Amino acid sequence: MSKVLNGARVLVTRPEHQAENLSRLIEQRGGIAVRFPTLEIVSRDDDRIKSTLENLDGFQWVVFISANAVNFALKTNSGKIPRTKSVRFAAVGQATAQAMKMAGLPVDLVPEYGYNSEALLEMPQLQQVEGQNCLIVRGEGGREQLATTLRSRGAEVDYLEVYKRIIPRMDSSPVVELLAQHRLDVITVTSAEALQNLSLMLGEKNNKLLSLIPLVVVSDRIRCLAADMGFNRITVTDSPIDTAILETVITCVTGE
């Protein structure tokens, strides 16, 4: 396998439990993965989670927003989510669908193209939902577009928030030192909150140096936020999967 990254240092900001695959891919192609998680994903302590997951018969649709939503729902509910014939299960994207399959859940609806709420809302199955009950399984907070649009189409929508995001307690000095020495070549970011936390964790005085580094993001929404924060060398990947992120990193480093 070609070591095309040739020692380039790539900042990987994924949560610690999700960073290893991307880091390994970077290292296989000759790069140095600088692991610096800017998000930590933790379970929410809410008795309603277990009771809701054990009584899904009142919903026509259960929508999982992310692989984390699937995994933390399972964690809260003793590793299983009861299947029921009356419910259809939807995934926002392919990574979420894969997590559902691994959990033994059916995937009744997943966008063929795209990996966000907009792509899911374009599916024919969600156009006529008047009078239907929908449950959105997600993390604490987050975007409202999916629920807002489904409600505008006449659906009743409830949230089940199974995890929350916090800023990790990390020693930022090694990354600050790399910044000061101009030895970071690319930054990878997979969520808006991760980008905001990166800025906070490194401190305002380092933001100018941070903004000079090529930034690889996985959506136009993150690109817009990054531009507002002062980044001017931003590239959006074709998809949020690790291999697509890697290919975009390679392009940033080699210019090819």
Score class of each variant (00 low, 15 high):
2 S>L: 10
7 G>H: 09
9 R>L: 04
11 L>W: 07
11 L>C: 09
12 V>L: 03
17 H>A: 10
26 I>T: 10
28 Q>T: 13
37 P>E: 05
41 I>T: 04
45 D>N: 11
47 D>P: 03
54 E>F: 01
54 E>C: 00
67 A>P: 10
73 A>I: 07
74 L>Y: 08
74 L>I: 06
77 N>C: 13
79 G>H: 09
80 K>D: 14
83 R>Q: 15
84 T>M: 12
87 V>S: 05
88 R>I: 09
89 F>Q: 04
94 Q>F: 06
95 A>P: 02
97 A>P: 05
101 K>P: 02
102 M>L: 13
102 M>T: 14
106 P>H: 10
106 P>A: 10
107 V>R: 01
108 D>I: 03
111 P>W: 04
112 E>M: 00
118 E>W: 00
123 M>L: 13
130 E>G: 09
133 N>A: 15
136 I>T: 03
143 R>D: 10
144 E>P: 05
146 L>I: 07
147 A>C: 10
154 G>I: 06
164 K>F: 09
165 R>D: 13
173 S>R: 14
174 P>G: 06
184 L>H: 01
185 D>C: 02
190 T>A: 14
191 S>K: 04
196 Q>Y: 04
198 L>P: 04
201 M>E: 13
204 E>Y: 05
209 L>D: 15
215 L>M: 07
215 L>H: 11
217 V>C: 15
218 V>Y: 10
219 S>H: 10
220 D>G: 15
221 R>H: 00
223 R>T: 11
225 L>W: 11
226 A>R: 01
227 A>K: 03
237 T>C: 14
241 I>Q: 13
245 I>V: 15
254 T>N: 06
